[in-house]
Design a protein around this nucleic acid. Structure first.
Lengths: 180, 180
DNA sequence: CTTCATGCATGACGCCCGGCATCTATATGA
DNA sequence: TCATATAGATGCCGGGCGTCATGCATGAAG
């Protein structure tokens, strides 16, 4: 009920974005409501509209926040982290591209979320290209896009499958394919 | 309003399944209601429960129907069809794995839809393995799983992206990677 | 050919959950 | 003082699933 410090308010806002980023990745864009997010952030959903224009605006910020999570390290490390059972089992902390691709694809064309998703694809592909062995610019781009597809596909399938052994096989096969 | 012939009734049932298979792939498992499906089939949603136990039962049948759609031909043909802009732009007629992976992943463990999805992964992977050049059994399986991941990943990303050129690049890069 | 029970499809209804957005009150930081 | 961040309740509505009495043609039986 109280008013909190501006500092605290900023922290709260940031917290809402982080929580939203997790919940969206776990349950999908339409699987979470404003009330769920605010409750998970320890707040009530009344004050939401004082901080955000609407749910879509939050979705965009949450998507950006998820993308901003650290992607540092060597190519091998990146791949090892991406293609791991931990990543498969924790969508809420993982790659937003893999977690939300289907949902974003159903969003209307021109939607702000689609724009952010597109940016994310370019960003990750660019990161992969930078970390790759030297070859022609065109070839690097092509390789990185294919590798990104393999990474996302493997994680997406491994998550949907009801057999942990098969999930692991998918991950391992992708690893061998991308690394080799 | 009238009662129709038993033959017609069978056709209607079949039609409901087909329509459901399309709508689920287009809008997701939670993006379509029973009423939508029946309406799209030219029926009213009242008679649904005379033909199906509930929505989940229909979802399972619809998933199987989508998987049963023809996958014949050579490896190159299969890949060319899968990695095409046509496939990207028509999720309702395309691979249910690519269209519903995220949705299925959010379904509770042990769900019947998850079981069907898993079966679908095995089926497609097996088909790819059969069509592949000769190598050891283990290696064929590994290759086919990796190839499946690349196929699904490329289509899934291409659909979510808001730039047709980038979508095309993803498809092409995957094609070069899987074929080569 | 007539009869009639069967069963498919209709269309409305009930029920309830849950979504988004708004508004007042409150307490507190500025 | 007074602007403001949060609380908490409320409004409003859309839409989901499942059920039911009704109607009527079919298809089998006599």
């Amino acid at each position: 009920m109280p008013r909190v410090s501006q500092e605290q308010a900023k922290l709260n806002r940031q917290r809402v974005v982080e929580v939203a980023a997790t919940l969206f990745r776990e349950r999908g864009l339409h699987g979470v409501g404003v009330a769920d997010i605010m409750a998970a952030a320890g707040l009530t959903h009344g004050g939401f509209y004082g901080q955000f224009a609407n749910k879509d605006a939050l979705a965009v910020e949450a998507f950006d926040a998820a993308l901003a999570e650290d992607h540092r390290g060597s190519l091998d490390l990146l791949i090892a982290n991406y293609l791991s059972l931990g990543h498969v089992q924790s969508p809420g902390k993982g790659c937003p591209l893999a977690a939300l691709a289907n949902d974003v694809a159903r969003e209307p064309p021109g939607s702000s979320v689609r724009a952010r998703f597109t940016h994310g694809v370019r960003q990750l592909a660019g990161l992969l290209a930078e970390l790759m062995p030297k070859m022609s610019r065109e070839r690097r781009r092509q390789r990185s896009l294919a590798a990104l597809s393999t990474l996302v596909g493997a994680v997406v399938l491994a998550r949907a499958v009801d057999d942990e052994a098969l999930a692991n096989d998918l991950i391992e096969a992708a690893r061998a394919s991308v690394a080799g």
